[in-house]
Design a protein around this nucleic acid. Structure first.
Lengths: 336, 336
DNA sequence: GATATTTTTGAAACCGATTTCAAAAATGAC
DNA sequence: GTCATTTTTGAAATCGGTTTCAAAAATATC
């Protein structure tokens, strides 16, 4: 392995000088600088990153905690963040919690070990009181998920508004019995969406039938299962608000199997605006979350915090936009 | 920051002894061992990972090069690898090349810098002659993609067979004019699939019309575009072999738009067996690649190579399985 | 040309762990 | 209790960089 000492010897200089050249410090004569470059090239020298990290107390790595890569929302978030991090000279360490508290805690240790310069949390499995203990070990920010009482930078979507516009759209289509169907009702993201949902109902003086609440919906399979439950109800809902496009796709798939027409007999709205919304028949109405913007800002804020710029009270909120397609628009039922 | 010296001082011992306890070395009396554990706990000590890496010359990190996370095939591969790597005590550094030669080269430097203990290549953008130069800097293996002349461990699918069974299936359904529609014809994965495709045609004494070859198909949009091209042909194919489920989904979506019936007027077969195949109407016939097995073996081989176990000639090949659904099975056309 | 000032350079300390080597302590054999 | 052997322990070297500090060299000032 070629070390800085080898380069120094070859160039006939001290390693201090070589180090200065590597880091582009001033006070090195052009002659010697060239000698160093020549020696580096001849030997194919590249600085050892562990040694650099140890001395600089910076690893140039940022960890991002996501539930799992194959969740399209988090996958896209991770992809965008990786590209953005690279632009800032950082590696992104993608850590999957797989929805497990223990796994999340294990990943949080990375901050203690100084293996990463900072940590971006996109979901939280443990109680905030547990997670916040790690704040003293390095910069942490929230992205997507959030905590009311957390005093760390937060980059999020306006989930209340997202839940509100989606629900209002369903109501405007003439629906009064709307099912609510999401995963992780514990999360604040989920709670805010629910608040938006409730807000819309209130505005139109509608009430919610608790039997129409499903809080374990994550996947396509969950959507299919839930459709079956809905289909057996004596007084079924005529519309479903879902927390993800996958769940919406599942419900539509289930409906097709049982010959229930979407949107005529059952309107379904998704969330995220994943590609699948444009492929399903009918195309799925949904709420778009501008993920790349969120990712970009999150990485920027993280990099700032690593360099002690910005402050812990920063909160950035991005708007969500309703996208109307076919799965909610029934000519029979339309009010306006 | 709490260091091993702080722990040593607190326990009234030397850091050598503390280090022995941390690494569970023998020859430490039970009494002192307990003292060390107590001190570590009181101080909340965790070893600094950069320091460890520098001294051990091991970072416990493996890099995996993939084109991009949002490509479902590579996303699933990355997800499976991450979980498997964690089991072996390794972090997985997911590096997206975004199909760029330069980005790939930049990531390869990680091996030079000793930032990772090894590298798994799942796709190759540069010429192999360029890539192989990095072999001297650390262990590298191929997973999914492969190179005939490469002398490094390879974990792959039997793509020839995959292309063959899919094509044979189409032929058996009575098709004689089959379009071929993939991305990256440069890759060996693609070439082997094509070989399987050609093999099946030969077997049934069919010829291939070069106007039915599309080699720039990666995404759903590409599929839609290609359908339009096919639809305008004077003598169009009656079946399409595609390199991914997304492209197949795109073609089907395009066909729907133009009122062309799948599979009656156009049979379409996908590749990968992604969830989308079960959601589309018609459900997409496809070739399943057992990604988790591939990922598991790749990580195992990588870990072995890091510990100088195994050898560079290892090649593991996994079979691909045809999955027949609706997009290729037309009652009108069936031969058998 | 002597002196003051600035620029350039290298020796040595340092980052936080692991490992070697030799000394100290404990144990065993008689 | 003495000597040989084994176990336990710590001082110091090491990994490969960066940074400090002081000395050397170059330049400026008069």
């Amino acid at each position: 392995m070629v070390t800085i000492d080898d380069v120094a010897k070859r160039a006939g200089l001290s390693k201090s000088t070589v180090s200065r050249v590597i880091n582009d410090y001033p006070h090195v004569s052009i002659k010697k600088k060239e000698k160093v470059f020549e020696a580096m090239k001849e030997l194919g020298y590249v600085p050892n990153s562990s040694a650099r990290s140890l001395r600089n107390k910076k690893t140039q790595m940022i960890a991002v905690l996501i539930p799992r890569i194959m969740n399209p929302f988090f996958g896209q978030l991770a992809e965008s963040m990786e590209l953005q991090a690279a632009k800032h000279g950082y590696q992104l360490l993608i850590c999957q919690t797989m929805y497990s508290k223990e796994t999340e805690l294990k990943h949080l240790e990375l901050l203690k070990m100084k293996q990463v310069d900072g940590m971006i949390l996109t979901s939280i499995e443990n109680e905030w009181d547990v997670v916040k203990e790690y704040l003293s070990y390095g910069p942490m920010i929230l992205c997507n998920e959030f905590e009311e009482e957390a005093t760390i930078p937060t980059v999020k979507f306006d989930q209340v508004h997202g839940g509100y516009v989606a629900t209002k759209h369903l109501i405007r289509q003439g629906h009064t019995k709307i099912a609510y169907c999401t995963g992780g009702q514990k999360s604040n993201v989920g709670q805010h969406r629910r608040r938006g949902f409730d807000l819309a109902l209130e505005e139109f003086h509608l009430s919610f039938d608790e039997r129409h609440g499903f809080y374990d919906a994550f996947s396509i399979e969950d959507g299919i299962r839930i459709f079956k439950q809905i289909n057996q109800m004596p007084d079924p809902p005529t519309a479903v608000f879902t927390g993800s496009d996958e769940v919406a796709a599942g419900i539509i798939t289930g409906a097709k199997e049982y010959g229930v027409k979407v949107p005529e007999a059952l309107a379904v709205i998704g969330f995220d605006n994943q590609v699948i919304t444009k492929l399903m028949d009918p195309k799925i109405s949904t709420v778009e979350q501008p993920i790349p913007f969120l990712a970009k800002r999150a990485v920027e804020v993280m990099v700032d915090r690593i360099h002690h710029k910005g402050n812990d009270e920063e909160v950035y909120e991005y708007p969500l936009e309703l996208i109307i397609r076919e799965s909610t628009v029934s000519p029979i039922r339309a009010v306006e």
